[in-house]
Nucleic acid binder design. Structure first.
Lengths: 166, 166
DNA sequence: AGTAGATATTTCGCTGGTGAAATATTCTCC
DNA sequence: GGAGAATATTTCACCAGCGAAATATCTACT
């Protein structure tokens, strides 16, 4: 059975000299799968009245463990975005009561963002649904295949992250 | 060797009941790899003074073969975006002289978008660099592994595309 | 032939991102 | 201890996307 990427590749293969069909098949599917996961995740969050970017920010704070704190800058790099964007996110999250911002007493340039109880509850209420989306897609594979896939993707990740650091 | 996803999972595994580490490892890496590819693609296009969204639009027109035409609506669905966004893209592409818009003579609601010679040249100038980015990442794997990976991803794609159609 | 509904595109107001400049604070070192 | 560099956050102007409403045209039915 062919997927949309197979059909794309079929065309370019004849059309383009020096076309690496295998690399395109992999890269193309990674791009498309990432996009395919986003939509249902957004939908399931929307049922709880939560935005994807809200969830991601709360999740990252949660992940840090008690006392669930971070600076805006840390959050921005952890989530791969500009500090400017994080300021806007935090403005909204603070308005919704999911986080609080305090000036650091040691270094008053810094700001401490802390998850509130309400923020924690919102994260907890939505976290299970998110995994569901992923499990549905990954469920297309047997456990052995999942293991293989995870390993192969790790190899690519290591190259990608290697290059970031330099 | 552990990648950033391994480290994430390590944490959640103890923290979250019913956590499917394997599914998360796969989904997480797909998301991150997609983002990792975007940046260098943008950079390499920027050297030619081209935006990623410009390239994608030109590429899709090019893919249709002679006479390299499509309607805005077709382009919008093919590229997975709203027609409104496509109008904006086409406005800009037309200003740059990469495409022309004409009213269809049969059905005057329709618009025909056609790749110009300049548009074709811009696509041709940049297309090779795009593949390079992908080959670098995929190059982390042997050919056999690439085959396996492409197949595994196809299985997930089929499930994802299946669900779209319904 | 005339009107209701369907279809294709564009316009509009909003959202969440960006990079660069502005602001506030701390660090360094002469 | 004061000047200048470094660091952390925010503000600003802009960009590309979205959904909904507006516009233009075609189709179908009576």
């Amino acid at each position: 059975m062919k997927d949309s990427v197979d059909r794309h590749i079929e065309y370019w293969r004849h059309e383009l000299a020096g076309y690496d069909a295998l690399a395109e098949a992999i890269a193309g599917r990674i791009q498309l799968l990432a996009r395919h996961m986003e939509k249902p995740k957004k939908d399931s969050l929307a049922e709880h009245g939560v935005q994807l970017w809200e969830f991601q920010t709360l999740k990252n704070l949660r992940r840090r463990g008690q006392p669930y704190e971070a600076t805006p800058g840390e959050l921005a790099t952890a989530l791969g975005m500009s500090p400017a964007a994080m300021t806007k996110r935090l403005d909204a999250l603070e308005r919704s009561g999911y986080v609080v911002r305090e000036h650091d007493t040691q270094d008053r340039r810094k700001v401490t963002v802390r998850l509130t109880v309400a923020g924690m509850r919102t994260w907890a209420r939505t976290v299970d649904d998110q995994g569901l989306v992923e499990r549905r897609l990954v469920g297309a594979l047997t456990l052995t295949e999942q293991d293989q896939l995870a390993d192969l993707l790790r190899k690519m990740m290591l190259v990608a992250e290697q290059n970031d650091r330099t």
